[in-house]
C-alpha cells in the first residue's frame, strides 16, 4: 500500500513549495506566453473605445492592498485607455484601504498622460457605507462627495460642474475583490441606467457571467488574465502579461498534482478490488 498512499497523502508543505517555485521561477525568467482575448474583455474595450471625447467615467477602486497584484494592472491599463480616449475620470474608493492605492495609480497615470487635475480627472476619495453611497450618487454626487480627497469643494472643479448624478456619467468601472460590482450593477445600472464595467479578481470573476449575459454589465476583466487581455488590446504590455507565465506554470503544476492524486486513487481502488 506504499505507493498509492504516498501519492494520495503528499504533505501540503511540498505542495506549497511546488506552488512557490512554479510562480517564482517564471517571474524571474520570463517565457513570453501570449494570451487570446475573451468576449467579456473585448466588450469593455469596445465600450471605452466608443466613448466620445469629454465623456465622464467613474473609476471606483473597491479593493484593498491585498488584491493589488490582480487589480492594479487593470486599473493602470484602463486609465491609460481612458486618458487616451480623452475621457474625464472621477476616481473614488469605497473601501477604507483603497485611497492609498487609488491615489498613487491615478496620479502616476495622469502625470504620464499629462492630464490636469480638476479638469480631466479628480480623486473624490473614500466614503463609508458603499451601497448607500452608490444609491446617493444616483440623486446627487455632491451629497456623497461635497469635497475631493484633499478637502477642496467639488464645485470648484470645472469637471464637476457638469456632473450631478448617473445621467452625466457615461461609464462606471468598479475594480473589486468583493460583491461591489454586483451592487454597482444592481444600483447604478438597474436603478439609474448607468453602464457598468467590472474588473474582478479571478475568484470573484466567475460570478460576473450572469450579469454580463443579462446586459447588467457591459463586460468584465477577470483576474490577471483579464488584465493581460486588456493590455494586449490597448497595446501596452504591463504586469498582467508578465504574470501570465507564472500563472500558466502554476496551473500546470496544480494539474500535475491532481493527476498524481488520481493515479494514487486508481491504483488504490484496483488493489482494493483485486484483494
Amino acid at each position: 500500500m506504499g505507493l498509492p498512499n504516498a501519492l494520495l497523502n503528499i504533505d501540503r508543505k511540498f505542495i506549497f513549495a511546488g506552488v512557490a517555485l512554479s510562480i517564482a521561477i517564471p517571474l524571474l525568467n520570463p517565457i513570453g506566453f501570449g494570451t487570446s482575448v475573451t468576449r467579456q474583455v473585448q466588450n469593455v474595450y469596445d465600450f471605452v473605445e466608443k466613448l466620445e471625447e469629454g465623456s465622464t467615467v467613474i473609476l471606483s477602486f473597491d479593493y484593498e492592498p491585498s488584491t493589488m497584484a490582480e487589480l492594479d494592472p487593470m486599473a493602470r491599463t484602463l486609465l491609460k485607455h481612458l486618458f487616451r480616449k480623452k475621457a474625464r475620470v472621477l476616481g473614488m474608493a469605497l473601501l477604507a484601504g483603497a485611497p492609498g492605492i487609488a491615489e498613487s495609480i491615478l496620479q502616476e497615470e495622469a502625470d504620464a498622460a499629462e492630464k490636469e487635475y480638476g479638469i480631466e480627472w479628480v480623486f473624490l476619495g473614500y466614503v463609508p457605507a458603499p451601497t448607500a453611497a452608490m444609491l446617493r450618487i444616483g440623486e446627487d454626487i455632491s451629497m456623497v462627495y461635497p469635497t475631493d480627497q484633499y478637502g477642496t469643494l467639488i464645485t470648484e472643479f470645472p469637471l464637476m460642474r457638469s456632473v450631478k448624478n448617473y445621467r452625466d456619467i457615461d461609464l462606471v468601472i468598479s475594480l473589486s475583490s468583493t460583491a461591489m460590482p454586483q451592487f454597482w450593477a444592481q444600483y447604478a445600472h438597474d436603478r439609474y441606467g448607468a453602464p457598468v464595467a467590472v474588473g474582478a479578481t479571478a475568484v470573484e470573476a466567475i460570478r460576473m457571467y450572469p450579469y454580463h449575459d443579462s446586459g447588467q454589465i457591459v463586460g468584465f476583466l477577470g483576474g490577471l488574465k483579464g488584465a493581460a487581455e486588456y493590455e494586449t488590446l490597448v497595446g501596452q504590455p504591463g504586469e498582467g502579461i508578465k504574470g501570465m507565465d507564472a500563472q500558466t506554470i502554476a496551473h500546470l503544476f496544480m494539474v500535475l498534482m491532481i493527476v498524481i492524486g488520481n493515479v494514487g486513487h486508481v491504483i488504490e481502488r484496483r488493489r482494493g478490488k483485486s484483494s
Binding site: I10, R12, I15, F16, G18, V19, A250, F253, M254, M257, I258, I260, G261, N262, H265, V266
Partner: peptide, 10 residues
C-alpha cells in the same frame, strides 16, 4: 493547490 489536490478525485 492543496485543496484541489485533495478534492479533485475521480
Amino acid at each position: 493547490a492543496s485543496a484541489s489536490y485533495r478534492a479533485f478525485r475521480a
